[in-house]
Amino acid sequence: MKILVCLGNVPDTTTKIKISDNKLDATGIQWIINPWDELALTRAMELKEDANNLVDGVSVVSVGLASAEPTIRKALAIGADEAFRIDCEPTDAFFTATQLSLVAKDFDIVLTGIESSDYNGISVGGMLAEIIGSASVSAVSSLNIDADKIIVSREIDGGKETVSTQLPVVLTVQKGIAKDPRIPAMRGIMMARQKPLKVIAATSTANLTEILKFEMPQAKGKCKMVDAENVAELVNLLRNEAKVI
């Protein structure tokens, strides 16, 4: 069984977003693996290391220019066996999913994070499944392989469902799939040098959407402070000024 983890390269979650020239101002931004994708990679590694190992290999793929390679090599250092980079700037989700399908069609389990913390939205996993015609489950918070059966749980409102799925499958994963992202060990960093990182030419495809411009949220008005000795005043404000209770 072969697992593919799709990696998005996104601004660090602590980044203060600045827009200039109608694009994200990349100055000073630290790029990281999309946190959900990183958890997906962690789970893939756990499955590979499991004693009843049914996983032959874990590969990673990212759509991006050469500047995305540090993130990709970090995934190799964490333990992925091989990597693919599809050589183009990801534009909209459909474009990105189409590029990913070049690689994804050869894998049994494809993992994508439920949401990328940038503007590509939440849609890449679902689109990818639809393009390659595989089974798919979204909002997956646990993944286990039992013999040849893939068992996942997905969050539903107020609870969860256990779902079995055929292969191949695209799983859109969320928090809970693994506890903490892994930190690459020195040995892994050393071994990453020797692992293959294949660069694949992009396929031409349309963008179904495009961003015309960005806008920053309006600054909040000043916070109205209430004295700690006068909690009743807060209740009054919530009832009569904000009218939320």
């Binding site: 909209d92 989700a93 459909f94 999913a97 439920i114 939205g121 939440i122 849609s123 890449v124 996993g125 679902g126 689109m127 499944a129 639809e130 393009i131 798919s136 979204s138 909002a139 997905r154 969050e155 539903i156 409102d157 859109t172 179904l208 959407t209």
Partner: peptide, 21 residues
């Protein structure tokens, strides 16, 4: 929500329609 996001992305491909979440 989870269902809406998943359906939107699948439909986007099925209908070749732009999806804005």
């Amino acid at each position: 929500n989870n269902e809406g996001k998943a359906l939107g992305s699948h439909l986007s491909v099925a209908l070749k329609a732009g999806f804005v979440s």
